[in-house]
Design a protein around this nucleic acid. Structure first.
Length: 293
DNA sequence: AGCTCAATAT
DNA sequence: AATATTGAGC
């Protein structure tokens, strides 16, 4: 428990002290008497929320550092997420900071009930909040934007898994994208299957045959009915899909009123992939993966 | 519990 | 148009 913030983001486990061996960070490290004896001004005490937030920040900076290869892997002129660049909060930080509730996967905390904060807010809202129950409390997740980067990883993972094993949960786990839900993947997968089916019927090419988007990426061997992705697994039983990817694809469909910060798929220009007759081409325009009719 | 598919909603 | 949600059947 203590050694990982989230099952999907286990970075290290072996050789590190367990939770029981560590002093909880929300406790004062220096006894009050000792502190005053050395004129150390006491730190403000930390709540679990503070500690969790700090952990999240640390995790995120590690992931940012880690994800530079992802960013540079895409030949594009995208620069790795800059260190000094004003850092966007990750999706997880923004919506799922409360990790204190043990045993519950944070991504399942879809909506949080607000206990009795309807006083001042509801006083301010006069007309259109009757149905909306104060959007703040709903804490709704922005819709996922399947950027080319995300889609590429999706494709890679599906290819790795093979047809039989490419199910939403497994895909989600292998993609290792923070904040990505099974529902996100299921929805995308459904659409993707429809697309591939259409492609099947329309040309001689199967879905995985000549589209270099599908074949260029890692897994030629498992394309055909691989029942084992065992060789991909590491000791955890988790899969060795290396670099965790920060959630960069969240956006609000371009609607107003949403604070900028988590949308922002990389830059104004991103590379859009679209598919025609089993081939793909790249268009520079708005950013999301499309399956043209 | 989870997968898939269709229909529907946003 | 893209994604989410829901519900049914398995």
């Amino acid at each position: 428990m203590g050694e990982s913030v989230n099952d999907d983001r286990v970075l290290w486990e072996v050789g590190l002290p367990g939770a029981d061996d560590l002093t909880p960070l929300n406790l004062q490290l220096i006894p009050a008497e000792l502190a005053s004896a050395f004129r150390i001004s006491p730190e403000s005490s930390k709540t679990m929320t503070d500690v969790n937030r700090a952990s999240q920040n640390m995790f995120s900076s590690l992931q940012r550092w880690h994800s530079q290869d992802i960013a540079s892997m895409n030949n594009s002129n995208f620069k790795p997420f800059g260190e000094e660049r004003n850092r966007e909060e990750t999706f997880t930080e923004k919506y799922e900071t409360d990790l204190t509730r043990e045993g519950s996967d944070p991504r399942k905390l879809r909506r949080v009930e607000s206990g009795g904060t309807e006083d001042a807010d509801s006083a301010l809202c006069n007309e259109n909040c009757a149905d909306d129950t104060s959007a703040k409390t709903l804490n709704k997740r922005p819709r996922l934007v399947w950027t080319p980067q995300l889609h590429k990883r999706f494709i890679e993972v599906v290819a790795h898994l093979g047809i039989k094993n490419a199910v939403p949960k497994t895909i989600m786990q292998l993609m290792n994208v923070e904040g990505l839900t099974r529902e996100n993947v299921a929805s995308h997968l459904q659409k993707y299957r429809l697309y591939t089916k259409r492609m099947q019927g329309q040309s001689d090419e199967g879905p995985y045959s000549s589209d270099h988007l599908f074949t260029s990426t890692p897994a030629p061997q498992s394309l055909r009915e691989s029942s084992e992705s065992v060789h991909l697994r590491n000791t955890n039983g988790h899969i060795a899909m290396p670099t965790p990817m920060p959630m960069i694809g969240m956006a609000n469909g371009g609607h107003v009123g949403m604070p900028v910060g988590y949308g922002v798929a990389l830059e104004a220009e991103t590379c859009q992939m679209s598919f025609n007759r089993g081939k793909y081409h790249e268009v520079f325009s708005a950013a999301s993966t499309t399956y043209p009719v």
